[in-house]
Design a protein around this nucleic acid. Structure first.
Length: 377
DNA sequence: ATTGCCGGGCG
DNA sequence: CGCCCGGCAAT
């Protein structure tokens, strides 16, 4: 019973496809993680089964990062794999408030054990402290394509219930527990933790979480008055990064203010703009189906993907407001010369995201059939 | 067929 | 201005 990597990828992407856009999902192979997931939201768990792979999708009410991003372990490890006769993958995701979007639990018809498995194997225990979301790193280093790039590890956030910010696990604590493996991460001496804004075209880096939160709150979320009130939404828009202080330039350059998201300049077919470290965790999968290809992308970039940005209107009037003061002459737009019409932004806009029925959730521009301001390209 | 949005109309 | 929509282009 081995599980080729691509197969798991396949499942992942499959699941992703059936889930709402605003998601944050997570992958783990530990059953206790699943249990935890179920404990958190017993009634919003969906199972998904396919072949020998089984997954759980956990829906959360609010958009929150629930745990770290964990990639599936490489398919073939050593032979110790045998005891793991089933790979369980839990995907925790968050969605916008009203997102029973996953109406039909994506379950293959012919599976019989989905019910029993859930009830028998996972009696929701109330001791939330019993299990924490943990990193299940493959214990063998043999595989070069070990998951866990900085991004996936860092984009983690402690789980918190929307209403109750503290359910027994606080951030610092969790972040340690998270790597249940003895963190050899003592990182020499000069390892600095910074916080980077993931807002498109921002990329601001600050040294404190509070700082970045405030930045996001005021600059991007436009919450000026209540600048010290946090509903935790900011968590969504920044990520934690570590960098060597002695290679600051390097580090900073790598986090160029360019959009961290997959927003690739439409004119450049090369999507490889995402540096390898970021997109790693690819597992040696050359034969990814077009389907599964979307999986990693979503996985790692959910952060910005679902980032529903309420950019204050005055940020950018639309169109080409970028440089207002370009000095008349020589102002031939660096844009693609004869693109009379803007390449038509990729990425979903309000309409697609919220749907026709929720038109009142769109940004005003979208409502007026103008260029979307919320999901800028 | 659907989606993004420019250009233009109306109050 | 704010608001809406015809219609086109890109998907």
């Amino acid at each position: 019973m081995t599980f080729p990597a691509f197969q798991q990828e396949d499942v992942k992407s499959d699941i992703i496809q059936k889930l709402p856009e605003q998601q944050l999902l997570l992958f783990t192979t530990k059953e206790e993680d699943l249990k935890t997931a179920e404990t958190k939201k017993p009634n919003r768990v969906h199972e998904y089964e396919k072949e020998n792979t089984r997954s759980i999708c956990l829906l959360e009410q609010k958009r929150k990062v629930v745990s770290s991003n964990i990639d599936v372990p490489p398919a073939r490890k050593s032979s110790e794999e045998l005891d793991m006769d089933k790979v369980t993958a839990a995907m925790v995701l968050t969605s916008l408030s009203t997102s029973p979007l996953v109406r039909s639990p994506p379950i293959r018809p012919n599976e019989s054990l989905n019910g029993s498995w859930k009830e028998g194997g996972f009696v929701p225990s109330s001791t939330s402290s019993s299990g924490y979301w943990s990193w299940n790193a493959p214990s063998d280093q043999s595989n070069p394509s070990t998951p866990s790039p900085p991004l996936s590890a860092d984009s983690f956030k402690a789980f918190r219930t929307p209403s109750q910010p503290d359910d027994g696990i606080d951030e610092a604590e969790t972040s340690n527990l998270l790597f249940d493996e003895p963190i050899p991460r003592k990182r020499k001496n000069s390892m600095k933790v910074m916080f980077k804004c993931l807002w498109k075209n921002c990329g601001k880096v600050l040294s404190t979480a509070a700082g970045i939160q405030k930045h996001i709150r005021t600059i991007h979320l436009g919450r000026v008055g209540e600048s010290d009130y946090s509903d935790g939404e900011e968590d969504f828009y920044y990520t934690e990064i570590r960098l060597n202080t002695d290679s600051v330039a390097d580090g900073l350059s790598s986090l160029s203010p360019v959009s961290p998201s997959l927003a690739s300049p439409p004119s450049f077919p090369a999507q490889d703009a995402i540096r390898p470290e970021t997109s790693c965790a690819k597992t040696e999968t050359k034969l990814m189906t077009p389907l599964s290809r979307s999986a990693p992308t979503n996985l790692y970039l959910v952060h910005t993907d679902h980032a529903y940005q309420v950019s204050p209107t005055h940020n950018r009037p639309a169109g080409s407001g970028e440089q207002k003061q370009s000095h008349t002459v020589l102002s031939s737009p660096p844009r693609v010369a004869f693109g009379l019409r803007k390449p038509r932004g990729e990425g979903k806009k309000c309409r697609k995201v919220y749907g026709m029925e929720n038109r009142d959730m769109w940004c005003t521009a979208c409502r007026w059939k103008k260029a979307c301001q919320r999901f800028i390209d």
